[in-house]
């Protein structure tokens, strides 16, 4: 390091399953410039101080959703969190909360991938349509009904913010339920009845206690808490009115 170079300390929660029985903190001192993101900080550690440090990253501009970490206890994208906002204090970096740690800052997201599959995150057409019939048309209002919920980048910050997911990992959780709502609220879609079975289930929306922190940390302003809670209302209406409705939504 050059003479007079400013430095900052980064404390990383390390865990190497082949050696460690449990995670432990390790402090690194790195050169600091005021344009450095936390991601650049951990990249410096990997490139210059300890090549064994593991973390996920890709785009460096808050769209790929790979680099989520707990930064001073707050679920954050490390690419859009800047060291200058902590300097000269030490910055604490840890793998996303509520997920099993695979290695260092890498979490195991298999459970989330399964949930993502279970919500059928694709349009199940209301009616079959041939190419010659042309495209599906939507009004701006119909687009507005789901657009915000389509912005999710699967960064998992909302899960790291959700104590109910931390306490019960079976809970489908904020991002998957927000994406589920995105398809249910789409005028072109006809898969709502199938997806509602998951919403209504014991792993569904009623695990949520409206903490609201998921929406607070979402970098894309999806407001997953709103999607989850709208579906509490939808689910409750179906629960009470299913006996009156001609077909009955529930099984």
């Amino acid at each position: 390091m050059a003479e007079g170079q400013k430095t900052i300390e980064i404390e990383v929660l390390r865990y190497h399953p082949e050696n460690d029985t449990e995670p432990h903190a390790q402090v690194f001192e790195i050169p600091f410039t005021d344009d450095m993101s936390v991601l650049q900080g951990v990249q410096y550690i990997k490139d210059h101080l300890d090549g064994s440090l593991s973390f996920r990253w890709s785009c460096r501009m808050a769209i790929c959703g790979s680099c989520g970490m707990m930064i001073n206890g707050v679920p954050s994208l490390s690419c859009q969190t800047f060291l200058r906002d902590y300097y000269p204090a030490r910055v604490r970096v840890e793998a996303l909360a509520h997920f099993p740690i695979e290695r260092d800052l890498v979490v195991n997201m298999e459970g989330f991938i399964e949930k993502l599959e279970s919500i059928q995150p694709y349009i199940i057409p209301r009616e079959a349509r041939t190419l010659s019939e042309g495209e599906y048309l939507q009004t701006p209002e119909q687009l507005g009904a789901y657009e915000q919920f389509s912005s999710c980048i699967n960064c998992l910050l909302c899960y790291a913010a959700c104590p109910q997911f931390g306490l019960n990992s079976r809970f489908v959780g904020p991002a998957a339920l927000a994406l589920l709502h995105r398809y249910n609220a789409d005028s072109r879609d006809g898969g709502k009845a199938e997806r509602m079975e998951l919403v209504n289930s014991e792993d569904g929306v009623f695990n949520c206690t409206a903490v609201g922190y998921c929406s607070e940390v979402c970098p894309k302003h999806v407001d997953p808490a709103n999607a989850v809670n709208q579906n509490k209302t939808n689910s409750a209406i179906d629960y009470f009115l299913r006996f009156l409705a001609p077909k009955g939504g529930a099984r």
Partner: peptide, 8 residues
């Protein structure tokens, strides 16, 4: 860990 579909 497939979600159960038991209605809550």
């Amino acid at each position: 860990m497939k979600p159960t579909l038991k209605r809550s």
